[in-house]
């Protein structure tokens, strides 16, 4: 990881590390179905890479969220979906995900820090106060999560 930045939205993964995670993932793909862990680790690396990689990371995490019934990992997927969307400046979706996490864990300081960071980015980009929450993206995230929770019953 680069040293200069010290927050989860600005850090950049070392390309060598990303390749290591990609190799592990692709080796498992060649053998059959990759494990949730290999998918998650690779997606986490992608989220901290370039814009196109972030999109791929988001797609993998959304798939994991839909398919994975293991509640213990859900918070990880949701947290990194918030990070990923914030990094491609899809701030309303990012906020919708972090709100979901805070709804489940209202005292989670890590989630609160991320929310503050996203709001700071939005202010920097002149986006805060535009009343975008409650808009289409929040509803889209909400219904994705509703489907997941419904599917688990």
């Amino acid at each position: 990881m680069m040293m200069d930045c010290d927050n989860v939205l600005d850090e950049r993964i070392d390309p060598y590390e990303l390749e290591r995670l990609r190799d592990q993932y692709e080796t498992q793909v060649r053998r059959g179905q990759p494990s949730h862990l290999a998918k998650f680790s690779f997606a986490h690396g992608l989220i901290k890479s370039t814009k196109n990689d972030v999109h791929q990371g988001i797609a993998i995490l959304e798939q994991l969220l839909r398919e994975n019934g293991q509640d213990i990992s859900m918070r990880d997927y949701i947290y990194y979906l918030a990070v990923g969307h914030a990094r491609i400046k899809d701030y309303d979706r990012a906020l919708a995900y972090i709100e979901t996490l805070l709804h489940a864990e209202s005292t989670n300081r890590q989630a609160m820090n991320l929310k503050e960071l996203i709001e700071k980015k939005m202010r920097n980009d002149g986006l805060l106060g535009a009343a975008i929450l409650g808009g289409g993206a929040a509803i889209a995230v909400g219904s994705l999560l509703a489907l997941i929770f419904a599917g688990r019953k």
Binding site: C5, D6, L9, D10, R12, T50, K51, N124
Partner: peptide, 21 residues
């Protein structure tokens, strides 16, 4: 050595000003 430009071309996050360093 600060600030050192670490922004890779085509990075997901282009603004130096956002970096809390």
């Amino acid at each position: 050595q600060l600030p050192r430009s670490t922004l890779a071309p085509g990075s997901a996050n282009g603004e130096k000003k956002d970096c809390n360093c």
